[in-house]
Simulated assay, not measured.
Amino acid sequence: MENTLKIQNLKCGGCANTIITQLSKLDGISEVQVNNDTDEVSFIASSENDLETVKNKLSQLGYPIDGDANSLPKKAKSFVSCAVGRMTK
């Protein structure tokens, strides 16, 4: 099933690269795309459980779903994820 999630802390292509790389590693997730202009992540998940896995992974990377708590540690983690994404392009 196709899903689109609005996320927080998305800043640049480095962020997008990290998100695409990390979500693509998850079982049951495919066709990951990130739109920096709308702060959205789109992907195909094979089940409802996979959708929850994606939400949790995004939060771990520092990109919580819009409306979820966006603590200082999550914001800091997004900067680290961004930097990693820039280095691995």
Rank of each mutant, 00 (worst) to 15 (best):
M1W: 07
N3K: 10
N3W: 03
N3F: 05
T4N: 05
T4Q: 09
T4M: 03
L5V: 13
K6E: 07
I7Y: 01
L10K: 02
L10M: 09
L10C: 07
K11V: 02
K11Y: 03
K11E: 00
C12G: 02
C12T: 00
C12S: 04
C12E: 00
C12V: 01
G13I: 02
G14N: 03
T18Y: 02
T18Q: 08
I19R: 00
L23Y: 02
L23R: 03
L23D: 01
L26N: 08
D27F: 01
G28A: 05
I29C: 06
I29N: 08
S30F: 06
E31N: 13
E31V: 00
Q33K: 14
V34K: 00
V34F: 01
V34D: 02
N36A: 07
N36D: 05
N36S: 08
T38R: 07
E40I: 03
S42Y: 06
S42K: 09
F43L: 04
F43C: 02
F43M: 05
I44R: 12
I44H: 12
A45Q: 05
S46H: 08
S46W: 01
S46Q: 13
E48R: 03
N49K: 09
L51E: 12
E52S: 09
E52N: 11
T53S: 11
T53L: 11
T53E: 11
V54N: 04
V54A: 13
N56M: 05
N56L: 06
K57L: 11
L58T: 04
L58V: 11
Q60L: 09
Q60K: 08
L61K: 04
G62V: 07
Y63G: 01
P64A: 10
P64T: 07
I65W: 03
I65Q: 12
D66F: 13
D66I: 09
G67T: 13
G67S: 09
N70Q: 11
S71E: 14
S71W: 10
L72C: 07
P73H: 09
K74L: 15
K75C: 13
K75E: 14
K75W: 12
A76R: 13
A76P: 01
S78I: 06
F79C: 11
F79Y: 15
V80D: 15
C82R: 10
C82I: 03
C82M: 08
A83I: 10
V84K: 06
G85R: 04
G85D: 00
G85S: 09
R86Y: 14
R86N: 15
M87N: 15
T88Q: 15
T88H: 12
K89I: 10
